[in-house]
Computed example of a mutant assay.
Amino acid sequence: MASAPTPDDMAATHRVAFTQSRPWSTGEFTALLDSPLTFAIGDARCFALVRVIADEAELLTIATHPDHQRQGLARQVMKDWQAQARTRGADQAFLEVAADNTPAQALYQSSGFATCGTRPGYYPRSGAAPVDAVLMKRSLR
């Protein structure tokens, strides 16, 4: 991967990658990265934003620019953020994903995550019913 993504890079990639939900702004990425508990990994093509608190890591978001999908970037970013979380003391990792986002669920399952619960109607959809969040976790040890 190239150099770490800036908040502007992340917002631009998030905007084109997240078409069914509200993308995050540069200000939101900046505020999250202001915390020493949060880190970004990847580059402007594909990145993950992760928070580690105590022994738990949470994938806050991951996005791949549509021009760079299906190239293995997200799979590599998944490996990289989990390795970084381990170095920060995380023993477990968590994430949530929209129930209708089957490509992301397949990526997470191939990265060792398993479903551990749901949040009904968590993700709003414009002109449609809200979609459940699928909660997933895995051990990092």
Rank of each mutant, 00 (worst) to 15 (best):
M1W: 08
A2D: 12
A4Y: 02
P5R: 01
P5K: 02
T6G: 05
T6Q: 01
T6K: 01
A11Q: 05
A11D: 10
A12C: 08
A12R: 13
T13G: 03
H14I: 02
H14N: 15
V16D: 03
V16M: 07
V16W: 07
V16L: 08
A17F: 14
A17N: 07
F18V: 13
T19A: 11
Q20Y: 10
Q20N: 10
R22L: 15
P23I: 11
W24T: 09
T26E: 15
G27A: 15
E28V: 13
E28D: 11
T30N: 01
A31F: 05
L32R: 09
L32P: 00
D34C: 08
D34H: 04
D34F: 00
D34S: 15
P36T: 10
P36K: 09
L37C: 09
T38G: 05
F39N: 04
A44M: 02
R45A: 15
C46G: 08
C46E: 02
F47A: 09
V50H: 04
R51I: 15
I53P: 04
I53G: 06
I53Y: 09
A54Q: 08
A57Y: 10
E58Q: 13
E58H: 14
T61S: 12
T61V: 15
T61M: 12
I62G: 00
A63T: 07
H65G: 03
P66R: 06
D67T: 05
D67P: 08
Q69P: 05
R70P: 06
G72T: 11
A74N: 02
A74C: 00
R75M: 11
R75G: 14
M78V: 00
M78P: 04
M78Q: 03
K79T: 15
K79E: 10
D80F: 06
D80H: 09
Q82E: 07
Q84P: 02
A85I: 07
A85D: 00
R86D: 05
R86P: 04
T87W: 05
R88G: 06
R88Y: 10
A90I: 00
A90R: 02
A90N: 07
D91Y: 08
D91Q: 13
D91K: 13
D91R: 15
A93T: 13
L95H: 10
E96I: 01
V97I: 06
A98K: 11
A98M: 13
A99V: 12
A99N: 12
D100Y: 02
D100M: 06
D100W: 12
D100Q: 09
T102H: 09
P103D: 09
A104L: 11
Q105T: 04
L107Q: 01
L107K: 01
L107E: 00
Y108K: 01
S110P: 06
S110G: 14
S110C: 00
S111V: 13
S111Q: 06
S111P: 02
G112K: 09
G112A: 11
F113C: 05
A114W: 08
A114E: 13
C116G: 02
C116M: 14
G117A: 11
T118C: 08
R119N: 06
P120G: 05
P120L: 09
P120R: 15
G121M: 03
G121K: 12
Y122L: 05
Y123F: 13
Y123G: 04
G127E: 07
G127F: 02
A129N: 10
P130R: 03
P130N: 08
P130F: 13
P130A: 10
V131Y: 00
V134L: 12
L135K: 00
M136H: 06
M136L: 03
R138F: 01
S139V: 03
R141W: 13
